[in-house]
Design a protein around this nucleic acid. Structure first.
Length: 549
RNA sequence: GCCCCGCUAGCUCAGUGGAUAGAGCAUCUGUCUUCUAAACAGAGGGUCGGGGGUUCGAAUCCCUCGCGGGGCACCA
């Protein structure tokens, strides 16, 4: 039992299936038999079309292969019964096993579903990393919540995760930002391409107060000081904003460190030796040797490095100096053109480009029009959280696949209340917490151990069945780096919980808290198992699990 | 012109090449002297953008066309 729940029942069935396939005489590699959830109740809980898939190699009819597999397979712990149906093999989770699972889940509590697939792999997730030239808006909110939940998933599955925000400080945009603050300091309009938001005026006033004599300095001396000052202030603000949506970082890594440590310079030098750095038109370019087509500027003709130069050093910093085995980057889709360049840079520097994993997420648009940071017309993440709350914001972002553009209807978001799915899940959790409290009041001395054999009703076993699926969901979400699988599972589990609870509304003898202490105790065990799992899932989303609502 | 993402129920979206394509919202019909009705039960609603192809089998893979969005800097 222990091994089955720590791996998940799907993995356990899959292993039994592979063992059985061997006994049929399949040599060499076994094709992916795609053991998955059965979609029709009559087909059980898991199903595979193994008979159809192996028919060619075994030169036998699919139905007879499936029949032989069904006879041969022995699922550990009697977790599931097996049945052949034409070319398919169907698995139905055994009721007795489901009952025992409930007790196991309760013992594991918040660790149920945790896996060690990562085996302590040391990796970095870099996400957010917005130019610190303004507050985070609702598009950035998607990136920080997505990145944060990816971290939570990786941590839950045995990875050693470092969460990093890369703070741009030396590029053209941040210099423009510094010049904008300088302009406001002297009562002028920001320069062309500068930042016009009111917060720039506020930063200028703060700088006037905090940086003595700054007004007396000429632009070329004042700008770097004002820039770093303003960036620090913006970083503080960004830290406060992400904290409101439960996002945590381990490291705020400043771009200028790459130059101070000589990493950017070292990267360029190494690429020069490999023939990937070329001199042309007074500038330094990166590209494949003997091919100018895809060349990109690293050092401008005026001697200033581009952001790309810093990024070369940043690769060195992470894959070499800090020795991460893998680096995951979370970017908005408008950077997609940069993916190939970064990967080829990583390869040219001598790293395995596969270890640089780049997750792109699509944009977040306002229904009434596009956002523009420099025009100062945008809805900030803070404003969004003010209006709909952190839990709803996170749930809303995370339930969508990163590939989908979010059309944010602000009017709807404001009026959103009952129809928000986050309340459905939280309510299930609160109900369970409440019923457990009621049980403690009515039965101060319940049996210490639950007799789970008393869990016999279909709605009780349905909750247990959902619990059985949880390790599969965790594995898939962590492996594919797709947190949006979690809210969909949460919804399914919450549905099973509400139905279970409601059976007691329809008929009082089916309540959790009844006169019979043994029945109460058994159902309480199920409540605890479900509540722990709901809480674990909500935690992975960074969404709260309230005890009362 | 080239690259990326999307197109699935009225709306918003799930859907690792498998059997009868799902959920929420919205609409309609029922269920509260309750362990919390922010809930439950039920109903209606589909050319999976169009067309080819691969396959025993395609919403899913390939090609092509259309529509929408995003990129293609000595910006990031």
């Amino acid at each position: 039992m222990t091994s089955v729940i720590s791996r998940g029942v799907r993995a356990s069935i899959n292993q039994a299936l592979l063992d059985a396939v061997r006994t049929l005489g399949v040599e060499g590699e076994i094709p992916d038999l795609e053991l998955g959830r059965a979609k029709v109740p009559g087909h059980g809980d898991y199903a595979t079309s193994a008979g159809l898939k192996l028919a060619r190699e075994l030169r036998q009819p699919p139905a007879s292969i499936a029949a032989r597999l069904a006879e041969t397979i022995s699922v550990p712990d009697g977790a599931a019964t097996v049945e052949a149906d034409s070319g398919y093999v169907n698995f139905r989770l055994a009721e007795d096993w489901l009952r025992r699972l409930v007790g196991q889940v309760t013992s594991a509590a918040g660790r149920y579903g945790a896996r060690d697939v990562g085996r302590g792999e040391r990796l970095q997730v870099e996400f957010g990393s917005v130019n610190p030239t303004g507050p985070l808006h609702i598009g950035h909110g998607r990136g920080v919540t997505l990145g944060d939940s990816i971290c939570r998933l990786l941590e839950f599955t045995g990875h050693d995760v470092q969460r990093e925000y890369y703070v741009n400080s030396d590029n053209l945009q941040t210099r423009r930002f510094g010049l904008s603050v300088f302009a406001r300091l002297h009562g002028l309009e920001p320069p062309e391409g500068g930042y016009t938001g009111d917060y720039v005026k506020e930063l200028a006033e703060m700088a006037r107060h905090d940086l003595p004599d700054i007004e007396k300095l000429p632009a070329d001396e004042a700008e770097p000081k004002l820039r770093m000052y303003a960036i620090d202030k913006m970083v503080e603000r960004i830290k406060a904003t992400v904290a409101r949506v439960n996002v945590r970082y381990d490291e705020w890594y400043y771009e200028n460190r790459l130059w101070e440590a000589g990493l950017a310079q070292a990267a360029i030098e190494r690429l020069r030796e490999s023939g990937n750095i070329k001199d042309r038109d007074g500038a330094l370019w990166f590209g494949e040797p003997n091919d100018e087509e895809e060349d990109r500027v690293v050092i401008r003709a005026n001697g200033q490095p581009t952001y790309f130069a810093s990024d070369l050093g940043y690769l060195l910093s992470r894959f070499e100096q800090r020795d991460f085995n893998r680096v995951v980057e979370v970017w908005a889709a408008d950077h997609h053109g940069y993916v190939a360049r970064m990967k080829s840079a990583a390869a040219a520097l001598g790293f395995d480009a596969q270890k640089l994993v780049i997750i792109l997420h699509q944009m977040v648009n306002l229904k009434e029009g596009k956002m523009s940071k420099r025009a100062g017309r945008f809805v900030t993440l803070d404003e969004l959280v003010d209006r709909v709350g952190s839990d709803a914001v996170r749930y809303f972002y995370l339930m969508r696949s990163p590939d989908t553009t979010i059309e944010f209807d602000l009017e709807l978001a404001v009026t959103q209340g009952n129809e928000n799915p986050v309340y459905y899940a939280q309510y299930a959790h609160a109900r369970l917490a409440n019923v457990e409290a009621t049980a403690r009041e009515r039965h101060p001395q319940l049996p210490e151990r639950a007799d789970v054999s008393l869990l016999a009703q279909p709605w009780e076993l349905d909750v247990a069945r959902q619990l059985a699926f949880w390790p599969d969901v965790v594995e898939d979400a962590a492996t594919l780096l797709e947190p949006h699988r979690i809210p969909y599972y949460v919804h399914d589990l919450a549905t099973a919980v509400h139905r279970f609870y409601h059976a007691g509304n329809a008929q009082t003898e089916h309540r959790v808290v009844v006169d019979d202490p043994e029945a109460t105790r058994a159902r309480l065990e199920l409540c605890r198992a479900a509540r722990h799992t709901l809480k674990t899932a909500l935690d992975l989303m960074g969404v709260g699990a309230p005890e009362r609502m």
